[in-house]
Amino acid sequence: MDIETARREHLKPAVSPSPLQSLLQDSTLPSTTHPGVLTLAFQIQHNLQYQHSWTGLRLHTHSPLTNAPFPRPLLSGLPPHRLYVHPDEQIELLKEAERKRKASKKEGGGNDVLKIEPEPEREWILPTRLSEKWTLGRLSEIFDGIGLVPPDAETARQEEDGQVNPWRTTKRIVLAAADSDSTVVYYIVHDGVVKPRQN
């Protein structure tokens, strides 16, 4: 036995452990989480990170509000651009941009373009499979466990986020539905009656 361990220490690992192996060894994940939904969460995470350039993706197995375990793991992350602008906020942003444009025109600047680029916001993501069936009850269970804005990984950023967007008044979640052919579609689900964007 001693010889065996000594030999292992001398040898460099031929290959790094497979993701599955490291996942199984990850003791932070609760054993109650079904591996199927966990794999799904990783699939969505991968998709967001590498196909949609999201950053700061985090897996949440427990509710930040109640600390009770979620029915399934959720993700949170930061999109490269703002994912959702409430129509009222959009009007406000347009007015602001118009004011700035007029100001710069007075100063002689030739900037004629209305530029609206709101800061991206962290979003909740609910990974699902297209073949699943949902009910209103299960959906509201998810919503009851989340806050308005997902908690950030770094607590330092938390304070910066202290001035949350005043327009973000209802909970929202990005519903990610993965099909068996690994296509993933994303839909924003708002908690309550929220008027639509005028795209």
């Binding site: 959906l139 994303y186 839909y187 924003i188 708002h190 009656v193 929220v194 639509p196």
Partner: peptide
């Protein structure tokens, strides 16, 4: 009554 509004995320 609980209601959920759904919009395409545009991703």
């Amino acid at each position: 009554v609980r209601a959920f509004s759904i919009e395409w995320a545009g991703l």
